[in-house]
């Protein structure tokens, strides 16, 4: 039996549209579910970030800002940083991220954020007034942790 090209095409198109919707739904779920980036696949990590400000700094912050907190190549110095005179400044960035720096409200607790802000302000600068957990809650203003769209970040 000879079918016209047109008939064939129509049949194919019908078949295509029948599966197009579920596929779109899957693609959408994949984007949102977001295990799209390359990851190690080791499952949940057992790496714990300590509760003290110094521990948080050494486990997280110095990856970019360096052990002496002096940064470089466009990574801002935390040492001798006059922006930190404002108690809220660093907490705000830790909660929301800024430029290339990710937010940490999903990795650190409000208590850890307060501890590391206090540590950085007093140890690498001379701002001695501690940042409290209540400060962090106030600045967060009830905002929830932002989920990232990948497991790597």
């Amino acid at each position: 039996m000879i079918r016209s090209h047109r008939q064939m095409t129509r049949r194919r198109m019908r078949r295509a549209s029948a599966i197009a919707l579920p596929l779109a739904a899957i693609l959408c779920a994949w984007t949102v579910g977001g295990r799209a980036q390359d990851t190690a696949g080791g499952g949940p990590s057992s790496v714990k970030v300590g509760g003290e400000g110094k521990e948080v700094f050494e486990t997280i912050c110095q990856a970019c800002h360096l052990a002496d907190a002096k940064g470089g190549s466009g990574i801002p110095a935390l040492a001798g940083n006059t922006h930190l005179a404002d108690k809220d400044f660093m907490v705000d960035i830790l909660l929301k991220g800024r430029g290339g720096m990710p937010w940490f409200n999903d990795m650190l607790t409000p208590k850890q954020i307060a501890a590391v802000a206090t540590y950085v302000r007093s140890h690498f600068n001379s701002y001695s007034e501690p940042v409290t957990e209540a400060d962090v809650q106030r600045i967060a203003g009830g905002a929830k942790a932002s989920p990232r769209d990948c497991a790597t970040c």
Binding site: A40, S45, K48, T59, Q62, A63, C64, A151, T152, C153
Partner: peptide, 13 residues
């Protein structure tokens, strides 16, 4: 190592 998340920061530091 192919470290990311907290482990990635820890090793990078």
């Amino acid at each position: 190592a192919f470290a990311n998340g907290a482990g990635g920061y820890q090793l990078a530091g």
